[in-house]
Design a protein around this nucleic acid. Structure first.
Lengths: 231, 231
DNA sequence: CGACGCGGTAACAATCCGGTAACATTGGCC
DNA sequence: GGCCAATGTTACCGGATTGTTACCGCGTCG
């Protein structure tokens, strides 16, 4: 059955963790769990969840540090802080570090779900089908069509193109792309990205030497132009 | 002075309205105010604010109805509900109707600001454009347009121009520019900056010998005049 | 077990800044 | 008006960055 989204829960108290896990799993979310800060950080970076529920007082690495580290990596999944620390300074600090919402224990489960949904709703902006030029990228069936006929993509190519298509017109830094598509821990040459872009261009560009969709910005990275190059 | 964003406050209690207005205006937001639901709805539709602070119990049209109506119009500015109704059902209802956050009176002003900032931060990522003269500098797509047609810039030129555009009308010392644009540790001739300014002028000035935008201040550095030279 | 395809690295080629140097010009100051 | 310092201008070169090709390891599937 199709999941509504992947949620990472970082919480060290076993009872609460179990409750959260069950309640979100019961609502048909895919749940990832981490009981300490380091494990949470690793999962956040490697599993690219759609939402993170983040406790603050955690062993090894606290929630504030995790939050800042995630944002420094240019990852922008929503973060909902979930903690007993209800002082205004803590709330302000958490939100300023890049959290999107902050809820104080003890909380009502219904409210938590509603807040989680609100965050997911907003980030889920991305439609299931992206159209650009004469192409259709179907994120559900993971297929790309050009004027109705399929263009076969490899897994990496698809992920990269989906990343591009979700960020039309924006200048994307090479390292940000590497983080998002390859994962933070991937130890790959910066050249891998060129290579993947090259194969993608070969498949979607009319003239790969004059790319209309995937433009390179020297010294920066790439930019995806859904309407093709205006020039 | 450049505003950080346009906020619409819909609140019927005059004292609270005044407090909110002052506190946001003091933080350099542009504030729109509405004292009843209908006025709020009209402003939401016509003024396209970047954020709406929405009371629920309002004369004429309540906050829930406004929220739903806005979302039905496919407007997606963030909505922060701000109300004395702290029952879980109300919170869940508000969030499910399309609100992005919900804060219960009495609230702490610092928390409200932090939450408003968090919402703006997320939605603001969409556009960051500096205008000057007939130019538009898009910091997101990293492009410069003159009357709609693109002017190609190199990485250094772009960085330099962005630096200028962010500091309109100010005399900028040469070494300060070097620090900011080249980096504190760059070991370059002071002439590099002239060179880069020269290429920039060649691209944006009508007559590079009579620069209107990038003026040199002898013995000091340069000054960027967004409206062109008054003389 | 072999073939194949994906995805990565390495090596090479082409390009493109961007820095320096050298010279021209300007402007201030006496 | 002339000298000097600061800036504009031009030409050139080196190196970093990206495109491209070739190759290889690994997992999958027949």
């Amino acid at each position: 059955m199709l999941k509504r989204g992947r949620i990472l829960i970082v919480e060290d108290e076993p009872a609460l963790m179990r409750g959260l896990k069950d309640s979100f799993a019961g609502k048909n979310y895919e749940v990832l769990a981490a009981a300490d800060g380091e494990a949470g950080m690793n999962l956040a970076l490697s599993a690219s969840p759609d939402l993170i529920l983040l406790d603050i007082m955690l062993p090894r690495l606290n929630g504030f540090e995790i939050c800042r580290a995630i944002r420094e990596q240019n990852l922008d999944m929503p973060i909902l802080m979930l903690t007993a620390k209800g002082q205004e300074e803590d709330i302000v600090l958490g939100l300023n570090l890049g959290a999107d919402d902050y809820i104080v224990k003890p909380f009502r489960l219904g409210e938590l779900h509603a807040r989680a949904n609100a965050l997911l709703r907003r980030s889920r902006k991305q439609a299931d089908i992206c159209r650009f030029g004469e192409f259709e990228l179907d994120l559900i069936s993971r297929r790309l069509y050009r004027n109705g006929s399929e263009v076969e993509l490899t897994a990496k190519e698809f992920k990269l193109l989906a990343h591009f298509a979700a960020r039309p017109g924006r200048a994307l830094a090479r390292d940000a792309i590497l983080n998002a598509v390859w994962g933070y821990s991937a130890i790959v040459t910066p050249r891998s990205i060129d290579r993947c872009v090259a194969t993608l261009r070969a498949k979607i560009e009319a003239d790969p030497h004059q790319p209309a969709y995937i433009q390179t910005i020297r010294d920066i990275g790439y930019r995806f132009e859904p309407e093709g190059r205006a020039a």
